[in-house]
């Protein structure tokens, strides 16, 4: 219940700051940037007009998904740490967009399945499994919104405007 605290919507300047930070994480080596800032501008432009918030949301979701994918050492940690979205999580507001992006990786769904398998196999305490509650809540939300978690989700959402439901 303590997780039921309200969260505040991210302002555009905050969002931009976060996009920059995440881009830096995926474009650095031993703490030093490996790409020039011009690449950052070009990368964000690739998501659309930078005057609109939706462009920055897309960039954040893609970069966060990429960072999680690239640094995933143990699949179970995806469930109980990276995607354990609770209202206090820094990316709570854009949790669905991030999962959608993650599922665009050919083995994204497989990684999530492996993570669940690991978490519910051996050696994990019930307390550790509870850490996955944020992820399960997210699944519930997706279920009720008919988003599912299969690979087709990203595709369905992308063409949602066309009303192409299955």
């Amino acid at each position: 219940m303590s997780n039921a605290k309200s969260w505040e919507a991210m302002t555009l300047p905050e969002l931009k700051k976060r996009v920059w930070k995440t881009w830096c994480h995926i474009n650095s080596w031993k703490g030093e940037l490996t790409s020039p800032p011009e690449s950052y501008v070009a990368d964000v432009k690739g998501f659309g007009d930078r005057r609109y918030k939706k462009t920055w949301i897309k960039a954040l979701a893609r970069f966060e998904a990429m960072f999680t994918y690239e640094t995933c050492l143990d699949a179970w940690a995806l469930i109980s740490i990276s995607f354990n979205f609770t209202p206090g999580h820094r990316n709570y507001e854009y949790r669905h967009e991030i999962i959608d992006e993650f599922l665009m990786y050919p083995d994204g769904l497989e990684m999530i399945k492996d993570g669940l398998e690991q978490l519910f196999s051996t050696g994990f305490t019930s307390c550790e499994r509870e850490n996955a509650n944020g992820f399960f809540k997210l699944l519930e939300e997706r279920e009720s919104e008919h988003r599912g978690i299969g690979r087709a989700v990203g595709f369905n959402r992308a063409i949602a405007g066309a009303g192409a439901a299955t």
């Binding site: 994480h25 999680t68 640094t71 940690a77 740490i81 990276s82 999580h89 820094r90």
Partner: peptide
């Protein structure tokens, strides 16, 4: 540390 600290 949060989940980002873990990933970093």
């Amino acid at each position: 540390g949060d989940d980002e600290a873990y990933q970093l």
